[in-house]
């Protein structure tokens, strides 16, 4: 883990856009609620055209950070800059930044269309734009209905439609997959990838790494308000997770065998191994040749989750 920690400080390269401005620059940001330091000296930057996962357990300070970025909450210290300035100073910000904070931010008695219309007007956008985003999130059929009758998935999509009204170049999503069914999660993933493919930027928070592992380029992990890891996802997988997960009754013996062959292997539990730089086929053949029984052999993604848990439990 120390390797990862060493990489954590100032890892995400601060790429400067053509106009010389950062998409997001968070500098020594902190927020105190009474006696609790919810966000503690947080510093990170976001690369244009990337999807960054903002991860941490519940209560880690993710939502507070996002709200400071959006000017809803005032930092106790430091700065949260979007496009080089505090959010409040961005002219007509909805046309540059789209945000989904809570899936519940609707008046239940108002139709989906009117919800979008009231915000479209606030950003000086034409009513036509409401129809465009409705079709983008596939909600045209329900637009006239009151939001009170929407499913959670429909509310998430309405929230996303709200964020997309101004055709922003940066999306900030707070736990967007919460309450979505698998189909919805898939839809969201495709959407986010497509959005980033157009050269736009996404910051998406989650308390489950696996949820965003297939979507993000970079990860920021915070715990107790502090940044514990900033990394490229590939690096994270390669360094921490990328390997073959083996369950075998004689795990220790297999471990010895793998070591003799020069593999990077690690005992996770009495019956579990994690081997790096190897395919499942190679492990299977080696074990078969030595007569070692295997109960499970898989390319590990759960180990990614283990890293996440380890990192976030560390200072508990």
């Amino acid at each position: 883990m120390s390797v990862i920690h060493a990489r954590a400080s100032g890892l995400v390269p601060s790429r400067v856009s053509a106009t010389g401005e950062q998409v997001i620059a968070v500098e020594h940001l902190s927020k105190r609620f009474g006696g609790v330091l919810a966000v503690d000296d947080l510093t990170f930057r976001l690369k244009r055209g990337t999807v960054t996962g903002f991860l941490g357990p519940n209560g880690a300070g993710k939502t507070t950070t996002l709200r400071m970025l959006l000017g809803l909450t005032r930092p106790t210290g430091g700065a949260a800059l979007v496009f080089g300035m505090p959010y409040q100073e961005i002219p007509n910000p909805a046309c540059r930044v789209g945000a989904v904070l809570e899936a519940t931010d609707f008046h239940p008695g108002r139709s989906g269309r009117d919800h979008l219309l009231m915000l479209a007007y606030a950003a000086d956008l034409p009513a036509r734009r409401v129809e465009e985003v409705l079709s983008l999130v596939e909600l045209q059929g329900s637009a006239r209905r009151r939001v009170g009758g929407y499913s959670l998935g429909m509310r998430q999509r309405l929230g996303l439609a709200t964020a997309l009204l101004g055709d922003p170049e940066l999306l900030i999503l707070d736990e967007p997959a919460n309450g979505l069914d698998p189909e919805g999660v898939h839809w969201l993933r495709e959407f986010v990838r497509g959005f980033a493919a157009e050269g736009k930027t996404v910051l998406v928070s989650s308390h489950v790494l696996a949820e965003v592992a297939q979507t993000v380029d970079d990860v920021l992990i915070i715990n107790r308000g502090k940044l514990v890891l900033a990394s490229d996802l590939h690096d994270l997988i390669a360094r921490a997770g990328g390997g073959v997960h083996v369950v075998a009754p004689e795990a220790a013996r297999l471990h010895e065998l793998m070591l003799e062959q020069g593999y990077d292997t690690r005992i996770l539990d009495t019956h579990e191994l994690l081997v790096r730089g190897v395919t499942t086929a190679e492990v299977g053949e080696l074990a078969g040749g030595a007569g070692v029984n295997l109960h499970e052999l898989s390319t590990s993604t759960s180990s990614l989750e283990d890293v996440f848990l380890e990192l976030t439990a560390k200072e508990a």
């Binding site: 959006l70 000017g71 809803l72 959010y87 409040q88 961005i90 910000p93 909805a94 930044v97 945000a99 904070l101 809570e102 931010d105 915000l119 606030a122 950003a123 709200t162």
Partner: peptide
């Protein structure tokens, strides 16, 4: 929240 995000 959306109101103040749209009109900070």
């Amino acid at each position: 929240r959306p109101t103040f995000v749209f009109t900070p």
